[in-house]
Design a protein around this nucleic acid. Structure first.
Length: 174
DNA sequence: GCCAACGTTGGC
DNA sequence: GCCAACGTTGGC
């Protein structure tokens, strides 16, 4: 007898999706900030507009209800992880791909075969001490974090549980 | 504003 | 299938 969890982990591994329950998403605060999310109805938003295949695969195949997601401000002053969200709805088609008026419109996406997916995220913990990029780079134990890898641009990325614990403590206690 | 790194496109 | 050109990301 093999549990669903193990089967799902094997399926995920076969697709190159890490078996983690911790993730990180980026947002430019000018477009959508942590405060925007915190003040949104139910502190929840759909994470639309992702147009990178690897990032999409992480959302579609990796993110499950209850998974924890760090919220990072890019192109910001300062650049920092602002808090923690939770996945409250698993992947479903991103409607903006079908909307010609949207910046995210994709003429190649078909309604019966959507190309882009999104999840819903709910803010659950605002960091008392946002963890700056500078801090992330300077913290021992965070080596190998995708966010700080030179040239990294992924807007949705996995985070190891060891890294997640360190970042959570920094955010809560400074 | 600059520019390195990256992903995608399209000619061949 | 290769790879140059292009547009984008995102730190600085």
């Amino acid at each position: 007898l093999v549990s669903d969890t193990i089967v799902n982990a094997k399926v995920a591994a076969a697709k190159g999706i890490p078996a983690t329950s911790c993730w990180l998403v980026k947002s430019e605060p000018e477009a959508f900030s942590w405060d925007d999310l915190w003040n949104a109805p139910k502190r929840t938003t759909c994470w639309d507009g992702v147009r990178n295949y690897l990032a999409r695969n992480f959302m579609r195949d990796g993110m499950k209800r209850g998974h924890q997601v760090l919220f990072y401000h890019s192109n910001a002053e300062p650049t920092a992880i602002m808090g923690i969200c939770e996945v409250v709805r698993e992947a479903y088609p991103d409607p903006s791909q079908f909307d010609p008026a949207s910046d995210y419109y994709d003429a190649g996406a078909k309604r019966d075969d959507p190309r882009w997916m999104m999840v819903d995220l709910k803010a659950v913990e605002a960091f008392a001490h946002p963890v700056t990029l500078q801090r992330l780079k300077a913290t021992r134990g965070l080596d190998g974090l995708e966010l700080t890898r030179k040239g990294s641009r992924l807007s949705v990325q996995p985070v190891s549980e060891a890294h997640w614990e360190i970042i959570r403590k920094l955010g809560a206690k400074g």
